[in-house]
Design a binder for these strands. Structure first.
Length: 213
DNA sequence: ACATTAAGTGATT
DNA sequence: AATCACTTAATGT
């Protein structure tokens, strides 16, 4: 049994039937990325869809001025909803995807994803379920931006980041956080200081330890 | 020792 | 919450 099949079974085996796993293994290409690599850029044409085997990917939106905003994270067993709509609709990507950790994924040619929809029931539910999950996360992101104050957004951001990296120490700078949350570094520094005083985090240079998970 | 980068802070809008 | 201006601390050369 190939390495790819093992990884597929481990992450998608409970969702997809065996024949489909075999098909994926036949046409899919295993790829790995290092941390902090851009794997999808805004306006890229998508030619294949990724199935995440391990690691985490950060999905960002960018405005006209080039300012970024984190929408959500993808983890193992997930796929990117953007590619789904891109593959079906032949449009360009409206988001950017950057690896948060080292990542392994399988690229499936976009032709297959449409074809399988009619053939495999499990594939259909997987795609719909993914869409639904991403939609939920998107709504959550909107709620967070619209209704939460910056300090709550920040703490949630740190917890999310600690969660997807499986490490309560987040390696980042105040500058990076401010870009992800679309605010200024000074604001982040102040709020982080406040969170530290509330015993929720511990601050270090280039890293932050999240205490309350 | 000097330059660069990260982080802390008061004051102003 | 954003911006400016400035300080302090850590790190690289």
């Amino acid at each position: 049994m190939s390495e790819i099949t093992n990884k597929l079974n481990a992450n998608f085996g409970y969702l997809l039937e065996d024949e489909l796993i075999t098909e994926i293994q036949k046409v899919g290409v295993l790829k790995s990325f290092k941390k902090n690599q851009t794997i999808i850029e805004i306006d890229d044409y998508i030619k294949s869809m990724p199935l995440l085997l391990n690691g985490a990917i950060k999905i960002l939106r960018e405005d006209q001025k080039g300012d970024e905003l984190v929408l959500y994270y993808l983890e193992k067993g997930d796929t990117c909803a953007m590619t789904l709509s891109c593959c079906l609709g032949q449009t360009k990507s409206k988001i950017r995807a950057i690896t948060e950790t080292d990542v392994e994924l399988i690229m499936v040619p976009k032709e297959k994803m449409g074809a399988w929809l009619g053939v495999y029931k499990s594939w259909q539910s997987f795609i719909l379920q993914s869409y639904h999950n991403r939609m939920d996360e998107l709504l959550e992101a909107v709620d967070t931006i619209a209704f939460l104050k910056m300090d709550e957004r920040l703490f949630r951001y740190l917890k999310d980041k600690a969660m997807v990296t499986h490490n309560d120490v987040v390696f980042t700078t105040h500058q990076e956080i401010s870009q992800d949350l679309h605010t200024s570094r000074v604001v982040i520094s102040r709020l982080l200081k406040k969170l530290e005083n509330e015993q929720k985090i511990q601050l270090f240079r280039n890293s932050i330890k999240v205490l309350e998970l």
